[in-house]
Amino acid sequence: MSWPKHEVQTPPYYLHSEGKGIDIDKWSIIVTEGPILSSNEIESWQSQLALKLPTMAFGQNTLSFHYNRERKFYFSTFDALQTVSHCSSWLRVKPAALWENRQANVDLFDANYDWTFSTTYGGTWLMQGEETPLSATESCLDWSLLRREDIPLLFFKELTLYEDELDDQGISSLSVRLRVMSSFFYVLCRFWLRVDDVHFRLYDTRIYHQWNSNVVMKEYSEQEASFQQVSEMGVDSRWFTNSDFMQKVLPLTKKTATRYYLTP
């Protein structure tokens, strides 16, 4: 997709106090943050979700996008956990026998869930969109604009929604990064899974909107490979904990784009 040349023009904006968000070009972007769930909150969430929670679930961390005072999409830990499968994952940690013994010692409903907490969650969307498949080389995002270093950064936020160290056998995490620039906003919602000596998985949702346009673009991709596959690529193991680096090397298995239209 080709994009027109763009001159940077900053619309009027207002920064909320204490990093709680920004108002700009008919948008109000609102951030809430808080600690991990308390024991009482964990018990309540597990009952509602019928799901054993990750060791760190940040229930108060949200990122909401309002257009003309109407909420259009948002990111929520609870909503994300609702998408975790209640079927056990086919993946097994390296010391599988120890893991199976551990599973035998927990309640039945605890065993009936995806212990990797894998999710394709890319926000809760309150408007309809048109989805199309993309090839590995296609993108709905204006990368020439996204990569420019001369565009002023007005607001930045990174939130962890949940994280689990998989009994010291790797990492499972869901996070959201936001950049509000003088000419656009850009969001990366990333699920990152590393099961040590077994598997890598990366599910990315990227959201892009240019000021004064009536379109919000969402691009979703899935990448994954076994440890053996990555090792055979010659990737240095020191990069295995870096999701940004691994995004550059993991094979792409799926890619789609969704276009959302804003009404005046």
Rank of each mutant, 00 (worst) to 15 (best):
L49G: 01
K52Q: 10
Y186R: 09
E163L: 10
N242E: 14
K157V: 04
D23I: 05
D150Y: 01
S76A: 07
F65P: 02
P152Y: 08
T256Q: 04
Y113K: 15
I24H: 01
E219G: 01
Y13P: 09
P264G: 10
M233Q: 15
V106R: 12
N101L: 15
L15Q: 08
T77S: 09
Q128A: 12
S47V: 07
L91N: 03
I30M: 08
T120L: 12
L174D: 07
W192E: 06
L188R: 12
Q223R: 15
P11K: 06
L134P: 02
V93S: 05
S226F: 07
D23T: 12
Q128D: 15
T83N: 04
N61Y: 02
K157N: 10
D150A: 00
T116H: 02
Y220L: 03
V235A: 00
M246N: 05
A104Q: 12
L134E: 11
L174G: 02
R259Q: 12
N112K: 15
T77V: 07
G34P: 11
Q169K: 08
D164A: 02
K94C: 12
L161R: 01
S213H: 11
Y203S: 09
V215N: 07
F227M: 10
F184Q: 08
T77K: 04
W239G: 00
R190G: 04
E70M: 08
W211K: 02
D236N: 15
M56R: 13
K218Q: 15
F245L: 01
Q46L: 03
L134D: 05
D114Q: 03
N214K: 12
Y260N: 08
T263Y: 08
A57R: 00
F245I: 10
S231R: 13
R177F: 01
L250M: 03
K26W: 06
R102N: 07
L126I: 03
L166I: 11
F78K: 10
S38C: 05
S88F: 06
A225V: 11
L53E: 08
L37R: 00
V93F: 03
L15M: 08
R92P: 00
S38K: 09
Q60V: 00
F200G: 02
E130Y: 07
M127C: 10
Q82R: 14
D197N: 13
K20E: 15
D23P: 06
W125K: 05
V198Q: 13
R148L: 06
F78S: 01
L166Y: 08
S237Q: 14
F156A: 11
L51F: 04
F156K: 14
L188G: 01
L153P: 00
I151N: 07
L108E: 14
S85C: 07
K72G: 03
W143I: 09
K52F: 05
S213Y: 04
N212M: 10
D197V: 06
W115N: 05
L159T: 06
D164T: 07
R206N: 08
R238T: 14
G19K: 10
Q169H: 13
D79F: 07
L146G: 05
T263H: 11
D150Q: 02
W90H: 15
L174S: 02
E70W: 01
L250P: 03
K26H: 14
Q9A: 14
S183K: 03
R102C: 04
F155E: 10
Q60H: 12
